[in-house]
């Protein structure tokens, strides 16, 4: 087996296609464990994983915790408040303290882009970026790629449309990097206020109409609208957003017949995705994504602690 020659998982951008494939293959082999009656293997017994979350998260934190536990690692969750960065312990001091306790892996989520990179440069432990600001969310993109590969048998050659607030989305960035590397054609769409400047230089085509992006798509990935953006005049109202950027039966009809619909969750029903699409097992793979998330995170923990050597 090939070894993952990396200390940290900071982003998809710095990964090679070989590394992505290795992670996806490894994750695939772990999928079966979650279907067993006894969902635990001793692979990482004696290893410890700290989940350091500076931002609220249910799905990602639970997923990393379950991934560690199913591999018999000891997992500890720390919820910290970014408000304490002004007063109180700095991230650097927190990191040094955690390092002194000798965990094997630190999983970090932080509202500031680059926080995992700061940590990675400081401590000898492996760092997994579980989402940093609007920068990257590599484990999400990996689980998305695993889901696409599972449903479509391949990634190369597919047309993937990512719809919503691209500017503020780490999920969009990681998927743009990952899917492009794996040979997919990535298009994005959203109101111009949600498209980051020079986004085309990331290798995607950008549209301001959902319909243009969705046409002939093999995969449609909807992003969660953050409701507080309304106050920043990025869109006038949820009503108007939903009228033009909500994925529904009609506009999804422009996509390929066998299109799959994805969403990183949590979904705003009726805002970016209509309930009948979200709940339609013939196209929606939203819950498959969640299931694959555990396997992908098991693969990351396994490969970073020297699995396969």
């Amino acid at each position: 087996m090939i070894k993952l020659a990396k200390k940290d998982i900071l982003g998809i951008q710095e990964m090679t296609t070989e590394e992505i494939t290795l992670i996806l293959d490894t994750a695939e082999s772990f999928l079966e464990i979650s279907t067993r009656e006894i969902k635990k293997v001793p692979t990482l017994r004696g290893k410890s994983v700290i989940n350091l979350f500076y931002e609220a998260s249910t799905r990602t934190r639970t997923s990393f915790e379950l991934a560690g536990k199913r591999l018999s690692a000891d997992t500890i969750n720390i919820s910290a408040s970014t408000s304490s960065v002004v007063k109180g312990e700095t991230l650097i001091d927190t990191a040094r303290n955690l390092e002194a306790m000798n965990p094997d892996i630190i999983v970090i989520r932080h509202s500031a882009a680059g926080a995992p990179h700061l940590l990675a440069g400081l401590v000898r432990q492996s760092i997994i970026n579980a989402g940093d600001g609007a920068h990257e969310h590599p484990s999400q993109a990996l689980l998305d790629m695993l889901t696409i590969r599972e449903k479509k048998g391949k990634i190369a050659g597919l047309k993937v449309a990512i719809i919503g607030d691209i500017a503020h989305s780490r999920v969009a960035r990681s998927n743009i990097y990952g899917l492009s590397k794996m040979g997919a054609e990535v298009v994005v769409a959203g109101p111009p206020t949600m498209l980051p400047r020079e986004v085309d230089k990331l290798g995607v085509r950008a549209y301001t109409k959902l319909e243009e992006a969705v046409t002939d798509a093999d995969v449609v990935m909807m992003l969660r609208i953050q409701l507080e953006r309304e106050r920043q005049n990025i869109f006038p109202s949820l009503r108007e957003y939903a009228r033009h950027y909500c994925l529904n039966r009609l506009n999804l009809g422009l996509a390929k017949k066998d299109v799959i619909v994805m969403h990183p969750g949590p979904i705003n029903r009726g805002v970016e995705i209509s309930p009948d699409i979200a709940d339609d097992p013939s196209c929606s793979v939203i819950l498959n994504q969640v299931n694959n998330g555990v396997a992908v995170r098991m693969a990351l923990l396994y490969l970073l602690t020297g699995g396969g050597q």
């Binding site: 951008q13 882009a113 600001g133 609007a134 920068h135 990257e136 400047r197 986004v199 230089k201 990331l202």
Partner: peptide, 12 residues
Amino acid sequence: EGYWSTQLGLPG
């Protein structure tokens, strides 16, 4: 604000 802020996910 430009290509690099887009890539790095930092507000521009």
